[in-house]
């Protein structure tokens, strides 16, 4: 493990407690994942593939049944390190309503730093900075329940940012949002990663979001089945489909057209790339 590794899963297995006598199957089976500082990683998987379990394990909310989870070398099992771990990795959950504690936006963002016992002046600064970087500064005096889903989720992200964590894990942050809200949250996450250098782990089942990451990890029934750049991962449609997922719309369309004899290059992932390639194809390769 080198110094650049922020989150490290070593042979991690996890099983949820069962209500009956028969134990549930393993939610995670011998997972090995290393996430480096500054990466934007998307974890893909259908429901029940174990992807949300990863979020909870990386924040010492649950402990692995076997194996180890290290956050910057800190073992999550060690209760004394709980505070330090949660100051390193913050988690944003799916439902924005259920993670906002206070009745005013800025007071909610201040909740994390207040818990850490930080000086009031410093909290004020952190809260303002965090709200500005997710574009919610103008809403700082608003009441959370009057905001849209995308806005609420950005407040939740700001709440984690104000704790100045090095890494933010987002557990399906866009699942309950409309397209506009998803766009807002995606833009905010990309900014955090590119401009502030925060490591982002995005757990999602939207392919179009995963395409924007530096690295994609595909999960299927508790195992990592693919791990690589979006281009590498989405060039394996068979494995993707077997994992219960679909290729991004643009890639699917390109593949179908290619099957029917349209000469499109491999590796098209985004609508922009598709348009570019299609223009080139239609013009017969004459136009650039």
């Amino acid at each position: 493990m080198n110094d650049n590794t922020l989150i490290s899963f070593r042979d991690v297995s996890y099983r949820y407690e069962s209500d009956t006598d028969t134990p549930l199957p393993l939610a995670l089976k011998n997972i090995n994942i290393d996430i480096k500082k500054g990466e934007f990683v998307a974890i893909l998987g259908h429901n029940g593939s174990g992807k949300s379990t990863i979020a909870k394990l990386s924040n010492a909310i649950i402990m692995p049944e076997s194996g180890k989870v290290y956050i910057k070398g800190m073992d999550t099992v060690d209760e004394k390190l709980e505070y330090d771990i949660r100051q390193t990795v913050g988690v944003v959950f799916q439902n924005p309503d259920n993670q906002i504690v206070a009745t005013i936006v800025e007071e909610d963002v201040a909740f994390g730093p207040e818990n850490l016992g930080i000086e009031p002046k410093e909290i004020r600064k952190r809260v303002d900075d965090a709200l500005k970087s997710v574009g919610m500064y103008d809403y700082r005096f608003h009441q959370p329940h009057k905001l849209s889903g995308g806005q609420k989720q950005r407040v939740a992200i700001a709440g984690i940012m104000a704790m100045q964590t090095e890494c933010i894990v987002l557990d399906e942050p866009t699942a309950m949002l409309d397209p506009k809200g998803r766009e807002e949250v995606m833009t905010a996450m990309q900014r955090l990663n590119k401009e502030l250098g925060i490591t982002v782990v995005l757990i999602t089942h939207y392919m179009d979001e995963a395409v924007k990451a530096d690295r994609v990890i595909v999960m299927d029934s508790g195992e990592v089945v693919l791990d690589g750049t979006p281009r590498e991962v989405f060039s394996q449609p068979d494995i993707i489909e077997h994992a219960g997922l679909e290729l991004p719309e643009s890639a699917k369309l390109a593949n179908e057209l290619r099957k029917n004899g349209v000469e499109l290059p491999e590796g098209i992932l985004t609508p922009e790339e598709f348009i570019e390639a299609f223009k080139f194809c239609v013009s017969g390769g004459n136009e650039k």
Partner: peptide, 26 residues
């Protein structure tokens, strides 16, 4: 269910009901 999720989210943000909490607004 909300209470359960909220408790998780609060724990993630280092809430543990201890006295070391400070306040942004004096």
């Amino acid at each position: 269910r909300r209470a359960y999720e909220l408790a998780f989210a609060m724990e993630c943000r280092c809430y543990n009901g201890s006295n070391r909490r400070t306040r942004m607004k004096k």
